[in-house]
């Protein structure tokens, strides 16, 4: 067990890094995708809809394969490291689901908030950045937390594009040592802890965004 742990933790570290960067990308994609969908400018709307439907409508594994195996070939010639592909693929994939969550959250902000912002002569950008987004993010936190945990779980696919994440290390060590119960038990615990870390982080963000508001975000 003593020799197992460092390798397992190495795998967990890879998983954690991918999850972290992909989450940031997913959140950015979610906000921008939702904004695009709600934009009065039609080409922007179509672009967002295409993004959302393509990434929701096809399998993550195939998306990863595309980014990793197809993009380097002609006519694209885009070669990305396995790690970048993992972050990009997971971020775009979960971001597409997130965009729909954000769209709902933005629309859930009371119309009176738009009216008050307009009456105070705010520009649309100020209104979105300072008034609408903080409230929409708060509303998006419960479904958003689910999506980020989903993202964490989906990281186990990255071993198929050569990354040594936690799930990959577990299988590798299992084949080498046959300590099946210990290894997969530990794997379970590590994934669980990471999911709890996401929960906790999101709870902290919720507390920050929801400061002064009745719990649950509805003031």
């Amino acid at each position: 067990m003593g020799e197992l742990l460092p390798l397992m933790l190495q795998g967990a570290w890879v998983t954690l890094q991918i999850t972290f960067w992909a989450s940031l990308l997913a959140i950015a994609c979610a906000v921008l995708g939702a904004l695009g969908r709600l934009s009065p400018f039609a080409p922007l709307r179509w672009f967002s809809i295409t993004y959302i439907e393509v990434f929701r409508g096809t399998s993550l594994l195939v998306q990863l394969f595309w980014l990793y195996f197809v993009l380097p070939m002609p006519p694209f010639h885009v070669e990305l490291s396995a790690f970048s592909v993992a972050v990009l693929g997971l971020g775009l994939h979960i971001g597409a689901y997130g965009a729909e969550v954000m769209r709902g959250a933005i629309r859930s902000v009371a119309p009176g908030q738009y009216e008050a912002s307009l009456a105070l002569n705010m520009t649309p950008l100020t209104r979105f950045r300072r008034i609408i987004l903080p409230q929409a993010l708060l509303a998006a936190i419960p479904p958003g937390t689910n999506l980020l945990i989903e993202l964490l779980k989906n990281t186990s696919l990255v071993s198929l594009i050569t990354l040594s994440d936690l799930a990959f290390r577990a299988r590798q060590l299992d084949q080498a040592t046959f300590m099946t119960l210990e290894i997969f038990g530990l794997t379970l615990v590590l994934y669980f802890l990471m999911a709890q870390a996401i929960n906790l982080a999101m709870r902290l963000v919720e507390r920050r965004l929801g400061r002064g508001r009745i719990k649950g975000g509805l003031a």
Partner: peptide, 13 residues
Amino acid sequence: IGMVFQSFNLFPH
């Protein structure tokens, strides 16, 4: 022009 609404519309955050 400034306006005050029936439902206050304060920014809750």
